[in-house]
């Protein structure tokens, strides 16, 4: 089980990447920053960065709206 933004809990599985988490959460906004256990993950690593079980993931979205 991993926790996203200190709120949403999702099932963990072996080999789960940051991109998988984003897909699962439906996080498609382009202006986001991701950290896994407080470690910043770069955009180019989303597809390869594996998330450990019990991880605390923060997906931070920038504000929007005029």
């Amino acid at each position: 089980m991993i926790v996203v933004n200190n709120k949403e809990k999702i099932e963990w599985y072996e080999g789960m990447t940051v991109q998988d988490v984003l897909d699962k959460m439906g996080y498609v906004f382009p202006l986001i920053t991701v950290s896994v256990n407080k470690q910043l993950v770069h955009k180019e690593d989303y597809a390869t960065y594996e998330v450990p079980d019990n991880a605390n993931i923060n997906v931070f979205h920038l504000a929007h709206g005029g």
């Binding site: 931070f60 979205h61 929007h64």
Partner: peptide, 13 residues
């Protein structure tokens, strides 16, 4: 416009 900050980021709990 606080939706992301509040609902998605859970930044202002």
């Amino acid at each position: 416009w606080l939706i992301f900050i509040d609902m998605v980021n859970n930044q202002i709990p």
